[in-house]
Simulated scan of single mutants.
Amino acid sequence: MPVEGGELAVEVAGGGRRAVLAVHGLTGNCRLWNWLRAEAPEIALVMPDLRGRAGSYRVAGRSSVRRHAEDLVRVLDALELDVVAVCGMSMGGFVAVELATRWPGRVRGLVLVDGGLPMAVPAGLTPDALPAAFAPQLERVSRRWADVDEYLAYFLHSNPLLDPRDPLLRDCLEHDLDDGRVLLGREAVLADATDVFFGEHRWRALATPTELVCAEWSAGADTPPAYSAEALAEFREALPVLGRPRRIAGTDHAGTVMTRAGAAVVGAALHDVLLRVR
């Protein structure tokens, strides 16, 4: 799909006019939604690779949450989709909120998956410290991988609860690779991370039905979650359109969408949003 700076790669699964625009996270790609497709094949999905990632790696221009939302409006226009539900994971949740608040007529409902609402900034994190904070995620860019198995072994160090035998995971990681290199723009990741942690948050302007799915942990068992119980209670009080948050027990951030159990909860939330806005 044509966007400013190049062409955005987009995969479409299923049919029908009641499509769901599915937006991946900071270092992900469109195959993040493999598990949702497996758990809810009846849902029509529009799945872009955001600029600076995978099939959209070579799209030129600075990345930002606002720019991603603008790109997605172009995608909807190209597909002649006037209004859609939007599902965003992690940073993709912030893009979904940006889209729903700046172009409210294009979004009929939201499902936010461990993202989209302000997260507590880790102690000591500043914009200047982001390169060090994201060094493990960005290390993959500087290396040439012998094959997907070597890349998978590295990926599991940061995502220990995922199943290394899962063919859906293997397919997702293969989509990152081109001749042994990971198609992930370092500057795009850092610019988008700056937006997520230190940028303007428009969530208070949400006026569309919204569901929130969140993990029990952040990265591995017993790690603090992205959203505490206290934060969730505050969001519900401040945001009338927000339904009761769904906490997925026994999962961390990645497992909210990269496991069948997590994807089943996300699929149920999407069905609830679609029913609420008929």
Rank of each mutant, 00 (worst) to 15 (best):
G180D: 11
F197N: 01
D149Q: 12
Y154W: 12
P245V: 03
W203N: 06
R170G: 01
P224D: 04
P240W: 10
L177Y: 09
R247K: 13
V189W: 06
A233D: 15
R244E: 15
D149Y: 03
T208D: 05
L242G: 02
R140I: 13
E187Q: 15
A219N: 09
P224F: 00
E139F: 11
G220R: 01
D195A: 05
R140T: 12
R236T: 07
L242A: 00
T208M: 12
F155G: 04
T256A: 13
V213Q: 04
L138S: 04
R165I: 00
L138E: 09
A133F: 15
L242N: 01
E211F: 02
A146I: 07
A153L: 13
F198R: 05
D222I: 05
R247A: 01
F198K: 05
G255R: 09
P160V: 07
A219V: 14
H175D: 12
W217S: 01
D192C: 13
S142Q: 14
W217I: 05
G243A: 11
R170M: 03
T223C: 06
T194Q: 14
P225E: 06
F198P: 04
L190Y: 03
W145P: 02
L190C: 06
V189Y: 04
L168A: 08
E200P: 12
R143A: 14
W217Y: 15
A146K: 12
E174Q: 13
A231C: 01
D195M: 03
D163W: 11
D179L: 12
G180T: 07
E139A: 15
D147A: 05
G255D: 11
P167S: 06
L169F: 08
A238P: 10
A207E: 15
W145K: 01
R140Y: 06
R204T: 14
A205H: 14
H175Q: 13
L190N: 02
A205M: 10
R204I: 07
T223K: 03
R204F: 05
H175E: 13
P224L: 00
P164N: 03
N159F: 05
F198S: 04
L169D: 00
L190H: 02
S158P: 00
P136V: 06
A238T: 14
R202F: 12
D192Q: 12
L162P: 07
A229N: 13
D252I: 11
G180V: 08
T251K: 08
D195Y: 00
T223D: 07
N159R: 06
L212P: 07
E234V: 09
D171K: 08
A207P: 05
R140W: 10
P167K: 01
D252S: 11
R202K: 13
R244W: 11
S218M: 00
R165H: 14
V213S: 01
T208W: 09
G243M: 08
Y151D: 03
P164S: 06
Y227V: 10
V241K: 05
W217G: 03
R244N: 12
L184D: 02
H253I: 08
P224Y: 02
A233H: 07
A238I: 09
L138I: 08
A254C: 09
L138V: 07
L184G: 00
G185V: 04
V241H: 09
F134K: 02
R144S: 12
T251Q: 15
T208R: 14
Y154V: 03
F235T: 02
L242Q: 00
L242W: 07
D147M: 08
V141W: 10
L206W: 10
E216V: 08
R143C: 07
R247P: 06
G243V: 06
L183M: 15
V189L: 09
